[in-house]
């Protein structure tokens, strides 16, 4: 009877650990966790990081969401946009272009015909300028925020946390999660940074200070 690869590999690992005893270790999480920062500081930190990544940041209050979304879209000349099915329709009240509501049946290449996409976000880390999308109804499937060339992302300041540990603690592991820190970039040619390779080449972030 031949052992399966699974049995063999697990057996080898047990053998290896028997041949050389494990080194006793305690995982100490002495690094910073559970940090909180006042609103103004989180906003300032986040804005600084996003601008550093060459993302455009617009700050507004919730009652001006629709107007700010429309401004961001028209600034980039977006006429035909996609939105996830669960996005608050009020956000698009001031936009006079064409809106396509996404669904799983729409093939990805068709998303490439869109000028841009508007989504909400799950959580954001100020210290690293990282926006987390988790596939909730107001964020949509991953292809939607990936294929179009412009991503307008709405971030509520209440969902902005100080650091990475605070952000990871808010995630739901089973959800497909995408961390976005600015537009895509490459430094593969002579280490010269080029912004915008395969993902959306433009990232517009709208931070709502009272939401």
């Amino acid at each position: 009877m031949t052992a399966t690869a699974r049995e063999t590999v697990l057996g080898r690992i047990r053998d290896a650990l028997a041949l050389a005893d494990p080194r006793e270790v305690t995982v100490e999480r002495a690094y910073r966790t559970g940090r909180t920062l006042p609103d103004a500081q989180r906003l300032e930190l986040l804005t600084d990081r996003l601008v550093d990544y060459k993302a455009r940041v617009r700050v507004c209050t919730a009652d001006r969401t629709a107007r700010t979304v429309a401004e961001a879209l028209s600034a980039r000349g977006a006429r035909r946009i996609g939105v996830p099915a669960g996005l608050d329709p009020e956000w698009l009240a001031a936009f006079d272009g064409e809106v396509l509501e996404d669904s799983a049946g729409i093939p990805a290449p068709r998303l490439g015909d869109l000028d841009g996409v508007v989504t909400a976000s799950a959580v954001t880390c100020a210290e690293t300028g990282t926006i987390f999308l988790d596939g909730s109804p107001d964020q949509g499937r991953r292809a939607l925020s990936l294929v179009p060339d412009l991503h307008v992302c709405v971030v509520d300041l209440s969902s902005v946390v100080a650091g990475v540990p605070e952000a990871v603690a808010r995630l739901v592991p089973e959800r497909p999660t995408t961390l976005i820190s600015g537009p895509s970039a490459t430094s593969d040619i002579e280490l010269e940074r080029v912004e915008g390779v395969h993902g959306p080449r433009t990232l517009e972030v709208i931070v709502r200070t009272d939401a």
Partner: peptide
Amino acid sequence: STGERMNPYTSLWTGVTPGDG
């Protein structure tokens, strides 16, 4: 690695998610 505070994109996925990916 790149000397960035965070790399532009990180993907986390768990098995298969119907309708997404």
